[in-house]
């Protein structure tokens, strides 16, 4: 156990240094997120020009929702799918399998410092800028207290989903299409762009049965006080359930990949 902990510690350190290697990419991520957020807020400002509320969302609550949702989405992009799929595509994943440490755990561990760097160098500065530029609905203490564990679970789900998408490479070889599909589905189905309450009932009911809601809508609803008391417990319980299912799915997919056992590139 001590040896494993030391091993993961070493990988976290390596991930931290690697994440800081390409600082230009972080700057571009910040600019892209800011640009996307400004466009979305401008559209909603126009929508709110003639009405005070839509489905109990006033303009400041909607602004807060979109800001939190888009910044959380920055933390769902962890490059795990990109690196894992690339390794499988080139057959380089076999070198990872030669290390005395869990293969998927290694990829997940490397994502953590990457996300920490994104939190510090992309999310935090954008949050400060947005707080100065827009009128936000101040979240209550309870909302913040629920948001932190829910956001951690959402980030974990993001890692698990990306591990699964990366492992698809064992079947499809190239995962470009799958990753593109995943990005689109997560953006629309997680409630990142439009709160679920504004969607048609049938659509909302379907989306709430999918894991994507747990990745953005659940933590943001908890933050702005839309889910409280029993509903909050239930929402986090559903997140935990999806996390457990994600872990099982990753384990099963990895075992299937080992049985399939092909290595590209000789």
């Amino acid at each position: 156990m001590r040896v494993l902990a030391r091993g993961y510690g070493a990988l976290l350190g390596a991930g931290w240094r690697t994440a800081l290697t390409y600082r230009g990419a972080l700057l571009l991520t910040a600019l892209t997120t800011a640009f996307s957020l400004v466009i979305q807020l401008a559209v909603w400002q126009a929508v709110y020009a003639n009405q005070r509320e839509i489905a109990d969302y006033d303009v400041s609550t909607m602004t807060t929702y979109l800001l939190a949702g888009n910044l959380l989405a920055v933390l769902l992009s962890n490059r795990v799918d990109d690196t894992l799929a690339g390794d499988i595509y080139r057959g380089d994943h076999i070198t990872g399998m030669l290390r005395p440490i869990g293969f998927l755990g290694t990829h997940a561990a490397v994502a953590l410092p990457y996300l920490a760097v994104r939190l510090l160098l992309v999310v935090a500065p954008l949050l400060v800028c947005a707080a100065g530029a827009f009128t936000l609905a101040a979240p209550g203490l309870a909302g913040l207290a629920w948001f932190v564990p829910a956001a951690l679970l959402a980030t974990t789900l993001g890692i698990l989903l990306n591990l699964l998408v990366g492992l698809v490479g064992f079947v499809t070889t190239s995962t470009w299409g799958v990753r593109y599909l995943k990005g689109t589905v997560v953006a629309f189905c997680s409630g990142q762009l439009v709160p679920l309450e504004l969607m048609p009932d049938a659509t909302r009911r379907v989306l709430e049965c999918l894991p994507f809601t747990a990745m953005v809508a659940t933590p943001v609803r908890l933050l702005i006080g839309r889910l409280e008391g029993t509903a909050a417990w239930q929402a986090v319980g559903v997140q935990l359930l999806w996390t457990a299912l994600g872990l099982l799915a990753c384990g099963a997919a990895w075992r299937a990949a080992l049985r399939r056992g092909e290595v590209n590139g000789g």
């Binding site: 040896v3 030391r6 091993g7 510690g9 070493a10 990988l11 350190g13 390596a14 005395p100 440490i101």
Partner: peptide
Amino acid sequence: RILARLHD
């Protein structure tokens, strides 16, 4: 350095 720690 990482390999040394992975292999204890």
